[in-house]
């Protein structure tokens, strides 16, 4: 896939380029905001890795102009400034995700993967260790053995798959599943989760309980 890296620090830029190249992507680099703006007008990218601190116009301005043209590529903002306030600003302007420097390569790769997964036509079959999920025909296999899921269990699984690596609170889950069940108490969710667990955990994936809060789907990568 085609990715634009906008980073003025040459050391960091070459590092990012190397990391992304390893995953087999086509990388363009821009060292200034105006250069990035020009490149974004000329070509279509699936992902833009955008540094906020740039020598001419800052990353937020590049992002603003980009979104003004109603371009839909995913944008991962990098910043060296203090996180939260910039994060809000960046997300308001239409950034899709956010990473504070310095970061571990693994973290960066995970974010990139998650963002690219959004744009790519959803692969009909996802594989997590021994678990295979076919989202099109809503079929699940654990170690190549088909497993039957109820409608609610399937909805729950989809919820976890849509937010890999995120801790979901019981309240969030209740809100998402309320369409399937009129009276959904937090206890009911525990029951659903434990049923889903017993059906799929044999495949090597794990739904961790975060005490007092919710659940974490632990099946990063494949």
């Amino acid at each position: 896939m085609r990715i634009l890296v906008v980073e003025d620090d040459p050391l960091l830029a070459t590092g990012l380029k190397r990391v992304l190249s390893c995953s087999g992507h086509a990388i363009d680099c821009a060292a200034t905001g105006l250069q990035a703006d020009n490149l974004l007008r000329g070509a279509a990218y699936e992902l833009v890795v955008l540094d906020v601190g740039l020598p001419d116009i800052d990353g937020f301005e590049v992002l603003r102009r980009f979104r003004q043209r109603r371009m839909r590529a995913n944008v991962l903002v990098l910043t060296a400034r203090d996180a939260i306030e910039d994060r809000v600003h960046g997300l308001d302007l239409g950034a899709d995700d956010y990473l504070t420097k310095p970061f571990a390569i693994a973290e960066f790769e995970a974010r990139v993967r998650a963002l690219l997964r959004r744009t790519s036509a959803p692969a009909s079959a996802l594989t997590f260790r021994g678990l295979t999920v076919d989202t099109e025909v809503k079929r699940v296999k654990v170690n190549d053995v088909p497993v039957d899921l109820t409608v609610r269990e399937w909805a729950l699984l989809e919820l976890f798959l849509a937010r890999p690596g995120r801790v979901l609170s019981k309240e969030q889950i209740a809100q998402q599943l309320v369409n399937y069940d009129d009276s959904l108490s937090l206890n009911t969710i525990e029951v659903y989760v434990s049923r889903l667990r017993s059906k799929i955990e044999a495949g090597g994936v794990k739904i961790r309980t975060v005490r007092g809060f919710g659940y974490l789907w632990e099946a990063e990568g494949a």
Binding site: L11, L12, G53, A80, P102, A104
Partner: peptide
């Protein structure tokens, strides 16, 4: 903060590579 973190980020990234 910006000036310190950027080279540290580059250093960390290259070491990880």
């Amino acid at each position: 903060s910006h000036q310190l973190r950027t080279p540290l980020a580059a250093l960390q990234m290259h070491l990880e590579l």
